[in-house]
């Protein structure tokens, strides 16, 4: 699935269509892509995607077409923009903070620790 998301000009129309269907959400059934959804609205949207692909519009143009109509929530993966930047930036920052805290705790422990080796023999 990861690889499918990468833009590739050589892909044929059908594949492009499917990939677009997977990242567009059906506005009538939150959380479901129009690829999954059986709602009539999703049917319509799939049809529109098909048409636009045939007309030769780029993926971004097609996405923009739906964003103009349904708002940015129609995209299952929010674009990286100034107000969605937080979504993308918080995980790496959070991870770094977690890592720094843990490493510093471990270093502290090392200094405090009293070097007692525990006896494993009873356990094994």
């Amino acid at each position: 699935m990861l690889a499918c998301l990468e833009e590739d000009v050589t892909k044929d129309d059908y594949e492009r269509e499917q990939n677009l269907n997977k990242i567009l959400m059906c506005p009538a059934c939150p959380g479901e892509s129009i690829d999954q959804s059986q709602n009539p609205l999703a049917d319509n949207m799939r049809e529109i995607v098909k048409q636009k692909v045939r007309e030769g519009l780029t993926d971004d143009e097609i996405k923009q077409y739906f964003v103009d109509r349904y708002g940015v929530r129609v995209l299952l993966e929010p674009p990286v923009r100034s107000n969605t930047l937080v979504l993308w930036i918080v995980p790496p920052i959070g991870i770094s903070i977690l890592a720094i805290v843990l490493i510093s705790i471990m270093k502290m422990k090392r200094r405090i620790s009293d070097n007692i080796e525990i006896d494993d023999s009873s356990i094994e």
Partner: peptide, 30 residues
């Protein structure tokens, strides 16, 4: 943490940025 963040982000975006977004499968896969 990433999963929790993605799950609650639509609410955060709605409250703080006034914009409703969806975070779905493509985000988590990536």
């Amino acid at each position: 943490f990433i999963t929790l963040w993605g799950t609650i982000y639509p609410v955060i975006s709605d409250v703080f940025f006034g914009e409703i977004v969806s975070v779905g499968e493509p985000y988590y896969n990536r």
